[in-house]
Design a protein around this nucleic acid. Structure first.
Length: 575
RNA sequence: CGGGGCGUAGCGCAGCCAGGUAGCGCACAUGCUCGGGGUGCAUGUGGUCGGAGGUUCAAAUCCUCUCGCCCCGACCA
């Protein structure tokens, strides 16, 4: 490619609406342009990168035995009604109607479609297991798209679905996919971690997320400092404290605490540590059908945060966890949300494991403007159901019993699930087993955010000059930068020859033949992150040399004209 | 959806408070200049000031409504 005949589209200034580095660099390097909130045009360089990632993902999926197919972006409502998700999915599902007023949606995922496809094609257990995948656009009407293609509404995803007759077969494929994902992220040169994840609304028994580690990540991940344990913080278990609850040493007292509603207020007023205060939160309870039915209280130490995912999974708690309104709290408890405590509380109580070992603690008195001090479980109020409610924090013991937890941030670029029969059951995907009996197939599903990977890779690999592509992702492998191309026939001739030779060798090369000054060309090529650069100048040609510099090399080096082709080939193959 | 902010040339911004007929830098075009890290000079092109309505002799500026976008939160296979 010659820059004079290409859409380089680099920008000198940071666009004002970009916040994180990958978004800024993707705009500045001319990879993407925003069309509307959460919708992006992929410019030629960006598309080249996207295709690179796609190719690696495709290759590894095929190596893992998955077969590629392609399903429509627009999906009929009927299938979503059949799986029960038409009603459940919420506003993230963009619903549309065709000219006959039939309902469709833009596919946020393809479980319904693949299950429908497969139930029509599969008849026998002998056809299983089978894994199909596609690389297709998805649309999720995110409440808040942000960070460019990191959280876009329309994005490119690889999604795979596996079908099995036995649980063991699902486990096996899940394992193969796990390994394939590791291969993909390794080949992409990303610093990543597989982490134990919550299965969320999709259900299923086992699930892992793959995270690229980056400060700007939207998810928090808990790691053990001395084992392989890693989990999404939503899922990381806070173990029960190892020490026993101390014996009561204080008597129960009711004291006036006017205008002290938050843990911080109470701690300051009474001059006690936050961990000496029991925080009591009230959420909606639910009946067996997850319909809101009354309230339930949650007690945890004042300095800890509630983990909403854990709460949502508790029996008889409305899911998703929803904080009770002040009005409902006053009606049930007769005081405001800042004055609640477990003593004489007339609603069910869940107590966090670490709150269960508190003694002589402070809590709300269930009367506005009053708190209790010297409170002790069992003596002053029953110790309700003791469960894990809180968010883990750095320094907590690792749930696998080895080491302590550290918290880091990550960008979720992949997610694998053992779905079980969630979809196959509701949509009646069955095959005959070896006894000639009809059996519901068991499913797994495996997603990779292809477009998000690009943003994640840039978050992890950049410097003051721009993008530093991991090997295999760069839009071009080699940049040829001539000095005084338009004045020196020698430079022009050398560049032309080198360009043709490189092209013939299948090396993706970009020749900067613009009538620009050297600095401009250097800056653009570095912004775009091209891994290898050759400078052709009169000065070098006088000595029969060209100048080579790798994107991250501190200094450039001289290469003789005769050796340059082999030199570059070697660089590209061995890096 | 709650809170905050922003829409003025392709990009980044000033002007708005104290209304008087739109400006700066970059980019772009032309010429000269420079020629190894975003040269210098000169001359130019480009804007119904997001949109609609209102107040006024006069609105980018004041008022009302509306649309779009960004940030924080909530939300999120």
């Amino acid at each position: 490619m010659r820059t004079s005949q290409y859409l380089l589209a680099t920008l000198r200034d940071d666009p004002s609406d970009a916040e994180i580095i990958s978004h800024k660099l993707m705009l500045r390097a001319g990879l993407i342009r925003k069309l509307a909130s959460g919708l992006y045009n992929w410019l030629p360089s960006g598309l080249k990168v996207l295709k690179k990632v796609e190719a690696i993902v495709r290759d590894e999926m095929e190596k893992a035995g998955a077969i590629e197919c392609l399903m429509p972006f627009v999906q009929p409502a009927e299938l979503w009604e059949e799986s029960g998700r038409w009603g459940k999915f919420g506003d993230e599902l963009l619903r549309i109607q065709d000219r006959h007023q039939r309902s469709f949606c833009l596919g946020p995922t393809h479980e319904e479609i693949i299950t429908d496809l497969i139930r029509g094609e599969l008849r026998s257990y002998k056809q299983l297991p089978i894994t199909l995948f596609q690389i297709q656009s998805k649309f999720r009407d995110e409440t808040r798209p942000r960070f460019g293609v990191m959280r876009a509404r329309e994005f490119l995803m690889k999604d795979a679905y596996s079908f099995h007759i036995t649980e063991a077969s699902l486990q096996q494929t899940y394992h193969i996919m796990f390994k394939a994902y590791c291969n993909i992220f390794e080949r992409l040169g990303l610093h990543y971690r597989p982490v134990i994840a919550d299965t969320g609304s999709i259900g299923g028994s086992c699930s892992h997320e793959f995270h690229v580690l980056a400060e700007s990540g939207e998810d928090a991940i808990a790691f053990s400092d001395s084992s392989d344990y890693a989990a999404n913080i939503e899922k990381a278990e806070a173990l029960a404290p190892s020490h026993e609850r101390a014996q009561p040493s204080q008597s129960l007292q009711k004291i006036s605490t006017p205008n002290a509603h938050s843990i911080e207020d109470v701690a300051n007023l009474l001059k006690v540590e936050q961990q000496q205060i029991a925080k009591t939160l009230v959420v909606y309870a639910a009946d067996d059908n997850n319909q809101i039915n009354g309230l339930v209280a949650l007690v945890l130490p004042g300095h800890h945060e509630l983990n909403e995912i854990k709460v949502s999974h508790l029996p008889h708690v409305f899911s998703p966890m929803t904080m009770a309104s002040e009005e409902d709290i006053r009606q049930a408890i007769n005081c405001g949300p800042g004055s609640i405590g477990p003593v004489n509380l007339n609603i069910p109580v869940y107590v966090d494991r670490s709150a269960a070992v508190m003694s002589d603690f402070v809590c709300g008195a269930n009367t506005d403007g009053y708190h209790l001090t010297g409170v002790n479980w069992e003596r002053d109020c029953p110790l309700g159901n003791v469960v894990d409610l809180r968010q883990v924090v750095a320094g907590d013991p690792s749930p696998d019993g080895q080491g302590l937890l550290e918290i880091k941030r990550g960008i979720e670029v992949g997610h694998i699930f053992q779905l079980g029969t969630t979809y196959s059951k509701s949509m009646k995907a069955v095959v005959l087993d070896e006894n000639g009996k009809s059996q519901t197939v068991t499913m797994g599903c495996y997603g990779i955010g292809v477009s998000r990977i690009i943003a994640a890779a840039i978050e992890q690999n950049n410097d003051a000059n721009g993008i530093i592509w991991p090997e295999g992702m760069a839009p071009f492998q080699l940049a040829i930068v001539p000095i005084n191309l338009h004045k020196s026939p020698r430079v022009e001739e050398t560049c032309e020859k080198l360009y043709q030779e490189m092209k013939a060798l299948g090396i993706e090369v970009i020749l900067d033949d613009r009538k620009e000054r050297a600095g401009v060309m250097f800056n653009d090529m570095e912004l775009l992150g091209i891994p290898h650069r050759i400078v052709v100048s009169e000065r070098g040609l006088d000595n029969n040399t060209l100048e080579y510099k790798g994107r991250v090399d501190p200094e450039s080096s001289q290469v003789s004209l005769q050796e340059v082709v082999a030199f570059i080939q070697n660089k590209i193959q061995h890096k």
